[in-house]
Nucleic acid binder design. Structure first.
Length: 595
RNA sequence: GCCCCCGUAGCUCAAUGGAUAGAGCAGUGCUCUUCUAAGGCAUUGAUGAGGGUUCGAUUCCUUCCGGGGGCACCA
């Protein structure tokens, strides 16, 4: 990575010039203004305190020291004391060559080797239709998993399905109540829909009649105690719902999950935890029989492990989950991609786990995201009737994409497939381009926009560049070798010609900026993972695309007369399109060759 | 009542304590005999209010104003 190379150089220069100074973390960032170079650092400003020297003077000395390097054309010391680095064209050119040589490896690293990171996301509930409020977890979690994998981490995903708990009491009660009617009726047609209806109807009844809630809770207690009838119904309900879940995950194009440990999986692992908690004095049994952990002194209220009716809680099941995951996977991090509204729960969870001396308590973290709200305000919920089903959104996305294709590129061969990629790409990118923690507003025309800073813009940029490559290859004398049109054959041809060039290419500012942006790809992934937010990568890809389009527009490539230049341009096009495709992949978005 | 988060352009969003606060949408004006106009170019426009910390604050602290969320023996 270029940035770390510069960091190292600065560190060395500081050590050489000011041996007595404690090595501080050197910050290197990308300045907003192009005139400020490709990278800049504020070390001199930070050092001035410790050294009791004028920051400008320090910057001056450092810049002289660093100017030796052939890596830069210029290292300047400016105004308050910034150091601005201008990467030499030759260096950029070499970096491009290394990308071309091994495009598969660009953006990959082995930093995470030997580290297992658990990522939990897409925690669907039984009998509740996945709606747009649910997809943030899936989209963010999936992107994080992809990013972790690209850096060599052993990333393990788990859906943690909500297949246990009081909601089953509600479902069971509703199911039995609807009984006569339902059992005779064929519900094989849309069993999930039936189930959902049962849930909603029973929920409404419970709202009217508090006594019914008690009956529902009793049904869950019976289930948890092993009542055969309830078990049987439960198994059926879970089966039907899991089908729905797989369907949704599939349609969203999520990476396969490594684990599907629903909450019910932890059923037999909870008793020991309760006993241990009581024994250690962490938890106590209160008068009505409930088992709680009192965290009121820490401002975390009371955490309930066992309810007064004897049933387990979500919290207790999550405790068991931590224990299981640590034992099974010995994770380095255990991440929960869950709505910010559950942060109170996770604070309780991690605190109780810590009090119980659980291994992995400290490594468990809530990767919270802002919830999705509607333009008129208010969260999206199934009960409030404001839920827009995932299915509906995806259908709409594909329809809109198909309409645009019909208009812009009616001859497109695999229009259906591309509509899917583009519609889904718009939806995912919309989500991922926001900071993870910020709430996002769901507005159809924004979510499914295909213009401006959107997924389709990135896909489009990629497709146009690919189109150039296809044409270049088909006109190329060696095109027979590239018949299959694979990336490898393309890049082999390009590479052969690029490495033949001995002269230094003179770059114009647009090409230079594009190249300088291109080589930051690994840094964008690193920065995104540092805050567990894919939006950093999304923002980077957008910038790359903007510069790619700038280049596309100003530089005719196929008609370039100077053969060396043309080869260089093609190499650049190849590298940029490769990074776009790869970056989109890391966000879980497909990049069609044509659109 | 207690706890958490958020107030940036007309709208939706960016900005590890840094330089002239970036984008997109919407608006206005250009741009397709030229590698895909889902594009490109130009242009209008913003840090809720007051204190503090420091070389430097959208960012950290504090008060106020405004908005949202949580404090379920739901998940």
């Amino acid at each position: 990575m270029v940035r770390s190379e510069i960091q190292k150089k600065i560190q060395d220069a500081v050590a050489a010039l000011y041996p007595d100074t404690a090595v501080l973390p050197v910050e290197v960032s990308v300045p907003e203004q192009r005139e400020h170079g490709n990278y800049s650092s504020n070390v001199a400003l930070l050092l001035s305190h410790a050294l009791k020297k004028n920051p400008m003077e320090i910057a001056q000395q450092l810049s002289e020291k660093l100017s030796d390097s052939t890596m830069f054309t210029k290292v300047e010391a400016v105004k308050p004391g910034f150091l601005n680095f201008f990467i030499a064209d030759q260096k950029l050119f070499e970096l491009l060559q290394s990308v071309i040589e091994n495009p598969e490896m660009f953006g990959q690293s082995t930093i995470g080797k030997g580290k297992t990171v658990m990522v939990e996301y897409f925690q669907l509930n039984i009998a509740k239709r996945p709606h747009i409020g649910h997809i943030r977890s899936a989209i963010i979690g999936d992107a994080l998993k992809r990013m972790f994998l690209s850096q060599g981490y052993h990333a393990i995903s788990d859906t943690h399905v909500g297949d246990w708990g009081t909601q089953f009491g509600i479902l069971l009660l509703g199911y039995k109540g609807a009984g006569a009617d339902l059992h005779t009726k064929e519900i094989t047609e849309d069993p999930f829909g039936e189930l959902e209806e049962i849930y909603l109807a029973e929920n409404a009844k419970i709202k009217e009649d508090p006594l019914r809630r008690e009956r529902a809770k009793q049904e869950f207690v019976k289930l948890e105690q092993g009542d055969p009838e309830n078990r049987k119904i439960w198994v059926w309900m879970v089966e039907i719902s899991m089908q729905k879940l797989f369907e949704a995950a599939n349609r969203l194009g999520l990476l396969p999950f490594d684990e599907h440990r629903g909450e019910s999986f932890y059923e037999d692992k909870m008793q020991l935890i309760v006993e241990s908690a009581l024994q250690r004095g962490v938890a106590k049994k209160i008068d009505d029989g409930a088992v709680i952990v009192d965290l009121t002194n820490e401002g975390l209220d009371e955490a309930v492990l066992i309810k007064s009716d004897g049933a387990s809680t979500y919290l207790l099941r999550d405790l068991a989950t931590i224990q299981y995951r640590k034992k099974e996977w010995n994770f380095w991090k255990n991440l929960y991609v869950v709505d910010v509204r559950q942060s109170h729960h996770f604070k309780q969870l991690f605190r109780v786990a810590e009090m119980l001396g659980f291994d992995g308590a400290g490594e468990s973290q809530h990767v919270e995201y802002g919830f999705m709200k509607l333009p008129e305000g208010g969260a999206i919920s199934t009960r409030g009737g404001t839920g827009i089903s995932l299915e509906k959104v995806l259908n709409e996305a594909e329809e809109r994409a198909a309409a645009v294709i019909a208009q812009k590129n009616p001859a497109l061969a695999n229009a259906k497939e591309v509509s899917h990629m583009v519609g889904l790409g718009a939806l995912k990118y919309f989500d991922l381009s926001h900071h993870r923690k910020s709430d996002i507003t769901f507005e159809w025309d924004r979510v499914l926009s295909f213009e401006g800073n959107t997924g389709p813009y990135l896909q489009y940029t990629h497709a146009r560049l690919k189109s150039i490559l296809r044409k270049a290859i088909s006109h190329h004398p060696e095109s027979a070798a590239a018949e299959e049109g694979s990336l490898m054959s393309q890049h082999e041809i390009l590479l052969r010609q690029l490495t033949d060039q001995n002269d230094t290419i003179v770059l114009d500012p647009i090409q230079r900026n594009l190249l300088a942006t291109l080589i930051r790809f690994p840094e964008a992934i690193e920065d995104g993972l540092a805050v567990w937010s894919p939006h950093v990568l999304a923002g980077y890809l957008y910038e790359l695309a903007v510069r790619g389009n700038e280049f596309y527009h100003t530089t005719p490539i196929l008609t370039e007369a100077d053969e060396e230049k043309k080869q260089f341009f093609l190499a650049l096009v190849f590298a940029v399109s490769t990074v776009l495709k790869k970056g989109l992949y890391l966000l879980g978005i497909d990049a069609p060759e044509e659109m």
